[in-house]
Design a protein around this nucleic acid. Structure first.
Lengths: 225, 225, 225, 225
DNA sequence: TATGAATGAGTTTTCATTCAT
DNA sequence: TATGAATGAAAACTCATTCAT
């Protein structure tokens, strides 16, 4: 049951050729999969994307290549799975935070969103950095879009519930805000920036978001469309 | 004047192992190098980064592999050169726009910056999309940083000349703004977005920047530090 | 006993970059490595050193290139391994013969040495000729020196035990004798010489060695240094 | 005329496919050829046989590849020419020394021979070491044999004129002696040996030759065949 | 005649994937 | 089911040789 939940979070259904061969049924298998995932991140970080080979991942995970291929029919499927699980966690964290902030003032919503996304990324700092590296190599665009859409739905619902704000085009503003948020955070993780500076830039990011939302909202007392 | 001196200093000098083997001397050779550059972009876009092979690039450029290796000792050096030339053009465009806006009102500066960066990227749309793809694979981090620093110097100088605004920490705000600008634009080019929507998002981006700068500037009449 | 300890110490340990990737564990793998060794010799003899390519060796061995690279990280490592095994056999044969002749008359020692070396080389006639061909291309100098030192130790010990001879400078004479022996034999194998003539030259070689040792030994009754 | 002499010393007529394209006619061309020869040796010594490329030789010689190919139709021809000239010089030196020692006592003949050969090799120490490196790669066996035969003829004639010695089989002894001389010297140049030790070994080599000749000559008073 | 840009066959090496044990 | 040896297509890179200028 846990397993099923584990998979079902993906709104995006993986295309046939990218799906895992089998879901881990036993505890041992689960541990194996876990080890493989972890190994993938490790190798990516320590060796770089071009040296990410199936053999190396298997070795690092402590299993044989053959075993790995029993779970994932090819390299792409593996990366697809790792990425999927990661994005799932991010999306869920943001969704949860948004749900909890329905009805809050706009400024608070903004801060909550930034903090949730930022914290989720920082919590999985390794994975975050590692997966930015392969994002373009594998066909994970669909996965990313799926994640974005989940988050977009969550934030749109949240912003729609703001008691102190209305927008002429909520969808556009929301999309634009998220695009900025994702892009900016990506920059911060991709470039080699000291944690201290990164934190100050994180604060500025929060300020940006608030300022943008303020600027984008319909002037108080203005009529709806 | 100081700024100009700075710029040339900041121009990143390629590390030994990434530099080109020789520069084209004859007209024929120049055309060859040009064709190789163009082919690199083409292959990247049509085949994706993992299928970017030296053979394919050479074939697309209409030259033999050997010829390519006469100019670039290996794939990395080629990508480094292509990236370098591209970033140079971007940085120069922004620098020029900034110089022309010294003394303008803050809002105008913001718009000018966004427009200059956006236009430069859009003008080289193909290269832009193509090079985002390889950015992580090759060691172009240094190049990117060099480009960023050139732009940062140019914008800092511009913002310092704004008659209607002062900042408590210009460097931080400037850095933060650019980080957002670069990240957001990256997102827009990386994801598959229709031009129409991209343009609307571009407008929102301009709004964001203005709003952030307004929010970050020291309240009128407030004392300096 | 001291000598034996020495021998094992002198066995040249391959430098990191030239050592084999893994040793064959299963019977199948052992046969594979054996085939690769044999194929190396064959290709060397039939095609010459410049046409000794990894592909050709693999093909002749009846395995795929990939397999070869599982055992040897590159061509040099392969040649190093082949050479090492060959030199080991030679050194061992000579050592054994020397040990068996301790205490014999000088003339007999000389003949035994020449015969042992000559026979060992002749027994592996193909390998002998093949490896002379690559000796200069690969960095096998260390291996060769190691082999020489083993032999030198063995012969020095033997000559020191001669009841009918003493030398002013045993080390020099020994070294000089071996240098001549190795060089002369090399000439005989390298040049295209008919076996009949080669045999006669082999006899002359034995004569040379005896004559040199006679000439070099301290006159009977002369005092030691 | 000098040029003709320069070529004619070769007893061995180069096979069609290995001969130079044209002999240098003008002083400038002569200098060019000289530079190419010198460059070949240099590259061989500094880069090793596998890095001996036509481009590198041309560059080191200060000419373009194209020019080099005007003199030598291919790499082999170049190496053939370099080797040929070198061997010629060696053979000539030995021949001259032998001619001068006709009628001398056997022991003196022996010493003269060793010294002449040794000195000739040492005088061209660089070339000697360099050419041992390529000796096996190119088809220079014929050249070497030619050189050997010239020397063999010279020494045979010399030994035949010895007043104090006769041999049962002069040809065999002569051949055997030279084979030993060549091989031993090769060993001394090939291995990395300090000049001091090399000199002592050189003395031992002279002793060897004398001893062998003494041992091989027909006992005084014994009847001829 | 000299040059050096261009050629492309040939080499080394890697690595995703299969399959006998 | 797990293993890891074997595979071989495909990649990067070299270099002898040619030929337009």
């Amino acid at each position: 049951m846990i397993i099923q939940l584990w998979n079902s979070l993906l709104t995006t259904v993986p295309p046939q050729h990218l799906s895992a061969r089998k879901s881990p049924r036993q505890a041992r298998a689960l541990a194996t999969v876990e080890a493989i995932f972890e190994a993938t991140i490790q190798v990516l970080l320590s060796e770089g994307p071009t040296r990410l080979t199936t053999t190396r991942v298997a070795a690092r995970a402590g299993v044989s290549v053959g075993t790995m291929y029993q779970y994932y029919p090819h390299k792409e499927a593996l990366l697809y799975a790792v990425t999927g699980r990661y994005l799932d966690a991010i999306a869920e964290a943001v969704e949860k935070a948004c749900r909890a902030s329905h009805g809050a003032p706009l400024t608070e919503m903004s801060d909550v969103l930034v903090k949730a996304y930022w914290d989720a990324k920082t919590l999985k700092r390794n994975a975050t950095r590692a997966l930015y590296l392969v994002a373009m190599e594998v066909d994970t665009a669909a996965l990313t879009e799926g994640c974005i859409q989940r988050i977009e739905a969550a934030t749109a619902a949240m912003f729609a519930s703001a008691p102190d704000a209305e927008f002429d085009d909520l969808v556009l503003v929301n999309h634009s805000l998220l695009n900025m948020l994702f892009g900016t955070v990506r920059s911060l993780f991709t470039r080699e920036i000291s944690p201290a500076i990164a934190n100050r830039l994180g604060d500025e990011l929060a300020l940006m978001c608030r300022a943008y939302l303020e600027a984008a909202k319909r002037p108080a007392g203005a009529p709806g469309r």
